[in-house]
Amino acid sequence: MVKRIWPIAAAVMTDSLRRKVVYVVLVFAALLVLAIPSLPDYGLGVESAVYREIALALSYVTGLVIALSLAANRVPSELEKRTVYNVLSKGVSRWEYLVGTWLGILGVMAGAIVAFTAVEMVMGYFTYGELMWRLWQGALATWLEMGVISAFAVAVSSIAGPVVVVTATLAALFLGHSRSTLLGGEGALALKPFYPSLDAFNVVNPVAHGSGVPLVYMLSMIVVFIGLVGVCLSLGVVLLGRRDL
């Protein structure tokens, strides 16, 4: 099983390294990081906190663009070009193909977020003389959330084209962060436990302004990640399994 999933994941990662979009997004985001300290209106003593908050936001947007660009295109493109025939005819299950694809995207995002966070750390150190280790907690949260987002996008992409995938994924992202807004009223409170919220991955406050994210919370984030990814990929496997190629 792993013998079949890993080559697919590795192929996705190798392919991604050839895509200019990943580098363009990273370079553009890095330039923005370099520009953060030049922003005016920093209050006395909160410069580094503001820097961390904006750095986290940039990491998030960068991860999102990369996740969408990879997840929305990969499966539809392989189905349309029929390159998937050569893969599935070799005894690879559709679920192995889908999971391998997702793992490849997750790997690319890990590389991108690590690289980006490293740039933010270095920049923060030279600007504020502070090693901002907590940024790595934010990086982990971003990576986990983007893992969920890309799993959702991969699932939708098994039956839809890139435009639909991007639209559906952005809608899911919006809904995923709107639990309080949508279920704020008392009447809907009972639904809260069933709402697929992405708020669990929002660690901006403890990372930027607080004292970091507790270990227990980090572990619970991973549990949420596994649950949501499991649901998304299971849905994708069912959808792809029912499709004639």
């Binding site: 192929a11 392919d15 070009k81 029929r82 390159t83 025939y85 050569n86 005819s89 070799k90």
Partner: peptide, 10 residues
């Protein structure tokens, strides 16, 4: 082993 009609590759 399978050769599809007009095989495509990455």
């Amino acid at each position: 082993g399978f050769l599809p009609e007009q095989p495509y590759f990455p």
